[in-house]
Amino acid sequence: MNSKNYEFSKTLHNNQNQNWVRAIDSSKIITWIDDLFRILFPEKTLESIQIELLLDQNKINFITILTEINKGKAVDKSRELADAFYEALPELYSSMQKDAQAILDTDPAADCIEEIINSYPGFFAIEVYRIANAIASRTKCLIPRILTEYAHSKTGIDIHPNATIDVPFMIDHGTGIVIGESTIIGKYVSIYQGVTLGALQVEKSMQEKKRHPTVEDHVIIYANATILGGSTIIGNHSIVGGNTFISKSVNPYSLIMQSNKNTVLNQQEIKDINFFSI
């Protein structure tokens, strides 16, 4: 080894001893969540004893992951967290069922539950969020962010695991959606592609403050709308039109649309008008 490589190796070693490490291979967490979803939503009906055995193995794998991440901490702590998570799993599963049913009830393009749980990116992103949020509410570790970034990479939907999202919640199409950390979303909210629920400004000093908006029950937010600010509240039963920009609260039952108007000309009226584009 030449001297430059030797010096760089020493630098890497020293930095890695100061937490410049990944802590765990993300693929282990991804395998765990994929296995869990195969138990919750299998290809065919499983016998109760099969489900019990699969859940036991999934729990063991989860404890192994927690123990690996939390090096130096007692294994009992990992078991305690796993116990709490799997005790909450029936309620999480019920929430997922309600999400899927709400999508089926509201989306005219959805034909059956099987279609939603198999192919809807919005459903997948929501349910990964629900799992990640349940873990994040019980411990601070890498798992929730790795889970939601996995869903982000697959769907283009970025939901922070610490956001608060009630049940049911519907995402249609979904690509480009961003839901920030301190966002609060109520029941029966529908969001379309390209929507941002973000902060008005990004400063480290605001880390502990509410930076993202609140969306109350029964709100529809159409494509590419941007809603910013921790004090911004979208009142219940409101409709937010596409491409709108909102940084102030709106009352319940509001209809928010862009003020810009499109001009529509009859085809016969534009015979003598020359258009060109670059």
Rank of each mutant, 00 (worst) to 15 (best):
T232N: 08
S190W: 08
L228H: 10
T148I: 04
F169M: 05
H237G: 02
V195S: 09
H212L: 01
S137F: 00
I143L: 15
S182M: 01
H173S: 05
I221L: 07
L200N: 04
I146P: 03
I185T: 08
H160M: 10
G186T: 07
A223H: 11
I165Q: 05
I233T: 09
E127N: 15
L142V: 15
L200F: 15
I234K: 03
G174V: 07
P168S: 14
S190I: 09
Q201L: 11
V240L: 01
I131T: 01
H237S: 07
G229E: 06
Q201D: 08
T148L: 07
P161D: 12
T164E: 14
G230C: 06
V240P: 11
I179T: 06
G230R: 12
T164S: 12
V189T: 02
Y222L: 15
V178Y: 03
I131G: 02
I157R: 04
H218N: 14
S137C: 06
Y188H: 11
L228Y: 12
G229P: 00
A125L: 02
V219I: 07
V189W: 06
R145N: 15
S153A: 07
V128L: 03
I135T: 01
I184S: 02
T214G: 10
V219D: 00
I165K: 07
C141I: 13
G156L: 13
H173E: 08
I131S: 01
A125M: 08
E208T: 13
I185S: 02
E181I: 01
N133C: 05
I159Y: 06
G235C: 03
S231E: 10
H212P: 06
Y188N: 12
G186V: 00
R138M: 15
E127G: 08
P168F: 06
K187R: 12
A163V: 05
G235A: 09
K209N: 14
M170G: 07
R211T: 00
G156S: 10
R130D: 13
S205T: 14
L228E: 03
V128F: 04
I143A: 08
S231G: 04
D166W: 07
D158K: 14
I177H: 10
I135H: 04
G229D: 05
K210E: 04
I143T: 09
A136M: 12
L197I: 03
A225D: 09
Y188S: 13
